[in-house]
Simulated assay, not measured.
Amino acid sequence: MKWSQIFTSSVGKKIIMAGSGLFLVAFLVVHAGLNACIWANDGGVMFNKAAHFMGASIVPRILEIGLFVFFLLHIIQGLVLEVQNRSKRKIGYAIKLGNRGSKWYSRAMGILGSIILIFLVVHLTDFWIPSRFGGLEPVYIDLATNQIVPAGAEGAKEFHNLYAEMAYKFTSFPVISIIYIIGVIALFWHLVHGIQSAFRTFGVTNQRYINLLTVAGWIFAIIICGAFIMMPISFMAGWIS
């Protein structure tokens, strides 16, 4: 396959979808690990320090640019493939196969992807943009004791208080929590199908391996999406403060 065909041929588009999807899966592991810092229940000290590292260090910032590139590639190629697939299916089957032909979530990847895109826009607007471009209240942490201290205290370092912003948004605006939970549920089904589908695209055809990848996809989706859903629930239920 020529390089020019990667963006134009059906196989090339699927390779881009699979490759970008697996990169985003790796990002989800990092993101879920960072978010798990909220359960230290230390007033956000660990979480704010981790978020500061991701936003202030050169390597994560470079990877962040790559992340947005892969997001765009994944979204654009997904939309293109969905339009192409729908145009090929204008004449339906005489007998509806339902889940005997394919699982409902594999047929609904376009809808699931659209829900995730809406969730992503809300998520970036509420948290990523303020954390990168200002608008967050500062918090001062003594790095020697890992305690929140007043401004100007000896040993105090200023951080963006993204933790407080999350607590405020999730507890004061239930609609944001609902959008977040719906988006993560859509992400769950997207991962269940997408992980094993990506490896199929890269040539895995052995049914034993496909079955293992399917199980691994379910386990991964349950752990990662379970962690994400528990975030707004933990704030709303008052389990962390």
Rank of each mutant, 00 (worst) to 15 (best):
S4C: 03
K13I: 03
M17F: 03
G21R: 00
A26R: 00
V30P: 02
A32I: 09
A32V: 14
G33H: 04
C37P: 00
I38V: 15
A40N: 10
N41A: 13
N41K: 07
M46A: 15
A51T: 07
F53P: 00
M54S: 13
S57K: 06
P60V: 11
L63F: 15
E64Q: 06
F68D: 10
F68C: 07
V69G: 14
F71P: 00
Q77W: 04
L81C: 04
E82Q: 01
V83G: 00
V83R: 08
N85W: 06
R86H: 10
S87W: 04
K90C: 07
Y93C: 08
Y93L: 14
A94F: 15
L97F: 10
G98V: 10
G98L: 08
I111M: 11
I115A: 09
I115H: 07
I116H: 02
L117T: 09
L120W: 10
V121E: 02
T125N: 03
S131A: 15
E137G: 00
I141F: 08
D142S: 12
D142Y: 05
L143A: 10
N146M: 13
P150D: 08
G152D: 12
A153C: 05
A153W: 06
E154M: 02
E154L: 05
A156Y: 12
E158K: 12
E158I: 01
E158R: 10
A167R: 12
Y168T: 05
Y168A: 11
K169N: 15
T171D: 10
T171Y: 07
F173S: 12
F173D: 15
F173W: 11
I176S: 13
Y180C: 06
I181Q: 01
W189F: 15
H190F: 10
L191A: 08
G194R: 03
Q196H: 06
Q196W: 04
V204Y: 04
N206H: 12
N206R: 09
I210M: 12
T214E: 15
V215N: 09
W218K: 12
F220T: 12
A221P: 11
I222S: 12
I223D: 08
I229W: 07
I233S: 06
I233W: 05
W239T: 01
W239E: 04
S241K: 04
